[in-house]
C-alpha cells in the first residue's frame, strides 16, 4: 500500500522560495501565475495494515516528525 504525504508552509507563513520561483516564472514570460508555494512530497510504502490504521499512524508520523506544525501543514493520501 502506498501513501503520499504533502507538506507545505501554512498560509500566512512567508515562503521565500515560492516568491523567488514566482518571480522567475514571470522572467520566463510564464504569466498568469498567482502564487507559488514550495513544499515536500514523500512517498511511503506501507505494509497491509488497513487504510484507517495507516491514516492513524501517518498522522502521528506527520505531527511528530514529518511536518513541523508551527510552520507547516500536511495532507495524507492513501492508496493508488
Amino acid at each position: 500500500m502506498k501513501a503520499k504525504i504533502y507538506v507545505t508552509l501554512k498560509r500566512g507563513v512567508l515562503d521565500p522560495q515560492g516568491k523567488a520561483i514566482h518571480a522567475s516564472l514571470s522572467h520566463l514570460g510564464i504569466n498568469g501565475v498567482e502564487d507559488v508555494r514550495v513544499g515536500k512530497f514523500m512517498e511511503i510504502t506501507l505494509k497491509e495494515i488497513g487504510v484507517e490504521e495507516a491514516r492513524r499512524r501517518l498522522d502521528d508520523a506527520c505531527r511528530r516528525l514529518l511536518a513541523n506544525t508551527v510552520i507547516e501543514e500536511y495532507r495524507i493520501e492513501i492508496g493508488g
Binding site: L14, P16, Q17, A20, V70, I71
Partner: peptide, 17 residues
C-alpha cells in the same frame, strides 16, 4: 531546541534566500 519543543517557534529559510 526549537524542533524538540524546548523553545517555542520555528526557523524558516532566510528571507534573502
Amino acid at each position: 531546541l526549537l524542533e524538540a519543543g524546548l523553545l517555542p517557534g520555528a526557523m524558516l529559510v532566510n528571507d534573502s534566500l
